[in-house]
Design a binder for these strands. Structure first.
Ligand SMILES: [Mn+2]
Ligand SMILES: [Mn+2]
Ligand SMILES: [Zn+2]
Ligand SMILES: [Zn+2]
Lengths: 142, 142
DNA sequence: ATAAACCTGAAAATGACTTTCAATATCGAT
DNA sequence: ATCGATATTGAAAGTCATTTTCAGGTTTAT
């Protein structure tokens, strides 16, 4: 299944006159294997285990590329660095303000009502973010 | 009603060993009168109409102060500068990605379902942001 | 009026990107 | 396999919206 993502990336590169490179292959495949919600800097450390000379900028640009071709989403929770995650089923997030833990949730009724709100304002939704900040179950026991 | 906000601010200052100054008074009262969703730089221009020597940093610090005592909310829509708005009834936002227009909405059913989601994850919500990005009614006619 | 504690504004620092540019690498056409 | 036009890479420099520092001013409780 990661193979199919690599394929998707290659097609995108071809169709746009871009080139396949060792760096892109390594960064992309590492990203596809990595945990969700990874920082640029974290992914950089990860790929440097195989290729110590890879630069921050190349990881950065590759993630933007993945975002461009729909294989990654970029998230901006709170302040600081953004997080990238593998694209997949739509979902929203709950972020623990104590430990930083991220929990994903999805509620079709909320999504429906959201559509209704848009209709009532004659607003054409392109994207949305619904983030809940608070204390995760683990952090409440303290 | 703006008077009561000024009062709230003064109480907060007193209770925290902070001082009442011309700058704070001017900046706060200007903010209370201003349109919702104002940038630091915009508010600065506004207060400089009465006091040309006010510095950006003082406006910045006063807005953080207002946020601290619950009289303002800071929003980060999209990229760039953040917006501050007078605290009031809770609501969420729809942001037009073409013209930047901001529309406020509030849906109790969504808020309820959101609570339900939190309960199901045993998550203690402290705050949330629900933002819808897309084309406003006006911008769709183009 | 005093003095301790705060506040102000200009300037410098921060931090997370984002852009620039000279050196390399890629790949379709020999 | 080799060439050469075009794209990519990585280090360094640049952006930009804050955020911090610091040398005077102010405020306010005696
Ligand atoms: Mn996620
Ligand atoms: Mn609002
Ligand atoms: Zn937690
Ligand atoms: Zn619009």
């Amino acid at each position: 299944m990661n193979e199919s993502r690599i394929q998707q990336l290659r097609e995108y590169l071809n169709q746009n006159g871009m080139k396949q490179t060792k760096q892109r292959d390594l960064i992309a495949s590492t990203f596809f294997k990595t945990k969700k919600h990874v920082r640029i800097e974290e992914l950089l450390q990860e790929v440097r285990k195989s290729e110590p000379n890879i630069g921050y900028v190349t990881v950065y640009r590759t993630l933007l590329l993945l975002k461009e071709c729909g294989l990654a989403h970029q998230r901006h929770f709170g302040e600081g660095q953004s997080l990238f995650e593998n694209a997949g089923e739509h979902h929203d997030h709950m972020i623990c303000i104590k430990c930083g833990a991220i929990t994903e949730f999805e509620d079709d009724r909320i999504e429906d009502l959201q559509e209704k709100v848009c209709e009532s304002f004659n607003f054409k939704m392109v994207s949305h973010r619904h983030e809940i900040y608070g204390a995760c179950s683990r952090c409440q026991k303290e």
